[in-house]
Every structure is written in structure tokens, then in C-alpha cells.
């Protein structure tokens, strides 16, 4: 597992060069924005169950066949598995945002996920839709624009962090599609 700092180290090691001023300037930005990053991770963790249940119910609303007999969210046992998977994916995205690097998400969550879902007969379009809703919710929480859950922390520009979080969700969608 890598973070933003060890990613720079691995990149420099392939060139057998020390990490110079240019790379360090980039890492200094990461350090300077550290508090924002922690706020975003906190926002995701604190609202995890809300984000996940919203995404799964949104997915079902758009495709009610899922909860009818023979659908992939019927009966409750399979719906529960769906909610659990949504939470697992969101958790690994939160780790990736905290680390500032996607390696933990790739290695521990996405590697083999598509094969598992194919074997279990999980529909990938529905999965991708639920992840898409989680992405939209996370972006809203990161920018503190979630209509009913505004936090009082000092407001600032978190758009680059929101974009970074969105890119991790895009990786999930690409991995299962």
C-alpha cells in the first residue's frame, strides 16, 4: 500500500534519483491542504450509512425490478449484501482519499471484484449506477453543499479534493464495468 509520499519515493527510485525540489513542492501542497483532506475523510465517514443507503435506494427506484421476485436485491438477504458491498466500496474510497493514492483501493477492493460479481451474477450496470450516486453524494459532502447536512467548519475551496474523490469512484465504475 502506498500514500502520496511513498508514491513519490517509488517514482524517484525507478530513476535512482533523490527526491528534489520540484517533487517536494508538490508534497508541500499536499501537506498544506492536509486539514481539508481530513475534513473530507471525516465527512465521508460520518455520513457513510446515509451515502450508502441513498445510493442503493436510488438504484432500486430507477429499476424496481431489482426488488421483485427474481431481482438481485430480493429477498432482504441479498439487499443486505448489496448495502454491505456499497459500504465496503465507500470505505476503500475513504482510505484512498486519506492516503492521497488509489493503491489501497486497487489492491484491496477492486482487484478481482468484476470477476467476483460476474461469478455471483451481480448486474454491473446497477452496481455502476449505485457507485455513481455515491460519487455525487461524496462530492456534495466534500464541497459542503449537501443541502440538509451543512457542516460548520471554515469554508474553503475543496473542489480539487472533491475531484480527487470523484476520480476514485470513477476507478470503481471502470473496474466493474
Amino acid at each position: 500500500m502506498l500514500d502520496a509520499f511513498s508514491r513519490a519515493v517509488v517514482a524517484a527510485d525507478t530513476k535512482t534519483a533523490p527526491i528534489g525540489a520540484a517533487e517536494i513542492a508538490e508534497l508541500k501542497t499536499f501537506i498544506a491542504n492536509g486539514n481539508k483532506r481530513l475534513d473530507v475523510v471525516n465527512a465521508i465517514s460520518s455520513n457513510a450509512s446515509c451515502i450508502v443507503s441513498d445510493a442503493v435506494s436510488g438504484m432500486i427506484c430507477e429499476n424496481t425490478g431489482l426488488i421483485q421476485s427474481g431481482g438481485n436485491c430480493y429477498p432482504n438477504r441479498r439487499m443486505a449484501a448489496c448495502l454491505r458491498d456499497g459500504e465496503i466500496i465507500l470505505r476503500y474510497v475513504a482510505y484512498a482519499v486519506l492516503a492521497g493514492d488509489a493503491s489501497v483501493l486497487e489492491d484491496r477492493c477492486l482487484n478481482g471484484l468484476k470477476e467476483t460479481y460476474t461469478a455471483l451474477g451481480v448486474p454491473t450496470t446497477s452496481t455502476a449506477r449505485a457507485v455513481g450516486i455515491m460519487k455525487a453524494a461524496t462530492v456534495a459532502f466534500a464541497n459542503n453543499t449537501a443541502s440538509k447536512r451543512k457542516s460548520d467548519y471554515i469554508s474553503g475551496d475543496c473542489s480539487s479534493l472533491a475531484a480527487e474523490a470523484a476520480s476514485y469512484f470513477d476507478r470503481v465504475i471502470a473496474a466493474v464495468s
Binding site: L2, D3, N35, L38, V41, S45, A48, G100, V104
Partner: peptide, 28 residues
């Protein structure tokens, strides 16, 4: 590679929980 962040994430992952406030304090 071992660092404060990866240690915190490994511990949280082993317990299957989201990063807690004490995890965030360590990173901070």
C-alpha cells in the same frame, strides 16, 4: 510501504471500519 498513513489505514481495514477521529488525529 510503512508510513503513518498506511499504518492507520491497515489498522482500520483490519477492523473493517471507516477512519475514526483518532486515526485522523494521527495523520494530522
Amino acid at each position: 510501504m510503512k508510513s503513518v498513513v498506511t499504518t492507520v489505514i491497515s489498522a482500520a481495514d483490519a477492523a473493517g471500519r471507516f477512519p475514526s477521529s483518532s486515526d485522523l488525529e494521527s495523520v494530522q
